[in-house]
Design a protein around this nucleic acid. Sequence first.
DNA 1: AAACCTCAATGATGGCCGTCAAGTGAAACC
DNA 2: GGTTTCACTTGACGGCCATCATTGAGGTTT
Lengths: 259, 259
Amino acid sequence: MRIQAVHVKSNGEWKRTVPAIGTNCFTCQARHRTEWCVLSDDELRLIDDNRVGRELLPGEVLFNEGDDCRRVYCVETGLIGIRKYDADGNSILLHLSMPGETLGYRALLTDTDFKASAEALEPSRVCFIGNRTVRSLLEQNPALGLRFLKRASNELEEAEEKIFHNVTLSVRARFAHLLAVLIDRTLNETDGSAGAEIRLPISRTDMASMIGTTPESVSRAIRKLEDEGIVHFSGTGGRTLTVPDLETLANEFEPQEYL
Amino acid sequence: MRIQAVHVKSNGEWKRTVPAIGTNCFTCQARHRTEWCVLSDDELRLIDDNRVGRELLPGEVLFNEGDDCRRVYCVETGLIGIRKYDADGNSILLHLSMPGETLGYRALLTDTDFKASAEALEPSRVCFIGNRTVRSLLEQNPALGLRFLKRASNELEEAEEKIFHNVTLSVRARFAHLLAVLIDRTLNETDGSAGAEIRLPISRTDMASMIGTTPESVSRAIRKLEDEGIVHFSGTGGRTLTVPDLETLANEFEPQEYL
DNA sequence: AAACCTCAATGATGGCCGTCAAGTGAAACC
DNA sequence: GGTTTCACTTGACGGCCATCATTGAGGTTT
């Protein structure tokens, strides 16, 4: 059971209904999912004493491509999008950061500026932890570095799979794969035996950019998949996704074995 | 000045002209480029005592996708290609590993099988270092983990740039970029003010797969770039690349700024 | 309730590039 | 030397998908 920060939309503006109170590193709901979970209580207290929490509304920017890295960003609730912009101002969504993920550790380590921008896609709560704090912890507790190394390894695996998919799969297959991933992430550790229903966290345009195509092509892919009964979109903005059978969806991007 | 392992081709077979003698971790020419450079002499000796060296001829396989990871692989000389295969048996080249790079550390850390295959593209010398040795060093020297973390961060940056390029640039631009990267890597730390001439280490087909296209499209891109005098291919197999002006090449993938 | 705005869906058109096929050249083997 | 083989090149064709333009649906504002 995940507790979301409470925000409402009124008069076209997002407003908090509850002041940002009281959470800390020890009570943080995402604690066990972060890399910091290997720290001792004393070490965690060091972070807690030196962090700054911030609430973000959708569209608010955490950092921009080219900015210097002065701290890392730990997502407590919500959803953060990592983007890169091209010369025409169009963006592609490289990654979705869920609660428990820490952003900016790469720029800190390689001692360079950010290579992408980060922006809230949903109302989010993020903690800032200064470079000095992180560095001293990395030096004093080897396990922390190894945890980050594991994270980087996993991200790398994801990135390479994405490269592979982009050149070997069709738009339709890539889109099906994206939907499967989104479902998988939203329904954490659910049995995938039957169907699923989720609310999509991102727009058609952003989904398109994630799989390297255009919104129009995404719409057409949706049309075909709906006609074949594989998926169903409903709700406001067509953002409610229903998949009667997850296996059928998986067949779209995992060619079934020969008999 | 880089000393290559000496091999010759005779009667269609690669043969060593010199037996595999004598190198060790302390005299290794790639030593200062590896992550192991942060180790003390005693620690390095631990590796040296537990490593196994192996010579590879072009086409020989180091490990396959799906294999369990029992050791890491440290490239001393030559060139190793990291590949992924699709269902039809076609491969895409994900990465070129140069001397000094250590392969397999990700599978070791995430405790999973290899997600890609590794194969010698040139005659190469590679050292095997067992998992236990690596793990104990990682635990005892935090700096080692941080070095690998830095490596992973850089690789991740590369991978994300590649994803970005694949969706925003044309085949022509991506190919120009690939050539620039190959030149940059071959001519380590050379002034890029003037032109350059290198011998391409990989086939057209492999270059095509690296930028997510077909050999035919690569050929056509070559044709056009040659007609415009930006590059020149010559030598056996058209593998000698001459670039009169590196800046002109760079303009192909870095749209020049507006005035 | 009408006007407005944003995002999604759909249609028409064209181009890049993937596919198929044939031709070329160099190296290797007989 | 002739044949084979393999990789690269070049041409013709077609399809997938990007682009442009229009319509439609929901939600918010006046």
